[in-house]
Design a protein around this nucleic acid. Sequence first.
DNA 1: TCCACGTTTCCAATAATATAGAAATATATT
DNA 2: AATATATTTCTATATTATTGGAAACGTGGA
Lengths: 105, 105
Amino acid sequence: MKIKAAVEALAALAQESRLAVFRLLVQTGKEGLAAGVVGKKLGIPPATLSFHLKALANAGLVKSRTEGRFVIYNANYAEMDKLIAYLTEHCCAGDNAQCAPLKKC
Amino acid sequence: MKIKAAVEALAALAQESRLAVFRLLVQTGKEGLAAGVVGKKLGIPPATLSFHLKALANAGLVKSRTEGRFVIYNANYAEMDKLIAYLTEHCCAGDNAQCAPLKKC
DNA sequence: TCCACGTTTCCAATAATATAGAAATATATT
DNA sequence: AATATATTTCTATATTATTGGAAACGTGGA
């Protein structure tokens, strides 16, 4: 992962509505949720939600597929893992005891 | 971790200079680096670096201690781990096979 | 005390981002 | 074909972040 991509992903997550959307999708699993369901659950108006989903999708953190009139969004776990790996890369100067072990999801 | 704290931490990392600073400190280990050394390694002018270090410190991602005229910064691994845990919390709808295992640092 | 060095604060110009109503687009139903 | 539903695009406004020079502050050494 390159720094520009990491910054884009982090910027996508660094906003309250988008972070809530992303976590909701992370917890939902790969089957995902329709945009409207996300908006209803989080109380975000359509235009605003669409703006935020676009940011998350551009950053690669979510993917979407169309099913009839619905657009279903799901978390991209691979990209999430890449971002985490980028943050923790070569950490602790090689001494793993310095940083706590990362929990598996 | 609460969402406001997570957003603050992510916003702190969502900027190229700050992300570079944080990763440098993560890789350096708990002994840390003086502000001036960081600035020299990354080519960031003093005023700008101070601004960015403050953002990282306010978010809890780095800590500092004063040694004589130097201010030594080091990564806060505990806070980094909390942020990662917040992102991945209850992920994959309980089916761990959906998301790749997180590497230990 | 006086000077050098490291860091932070102040400041002002510039740039980027968030919000949501209204209109547009696309699919489904009758 | 006409209507309802789901989502996105357009648009304008408001808010917040980034940059770095100059000055200020603190510490250490001569």
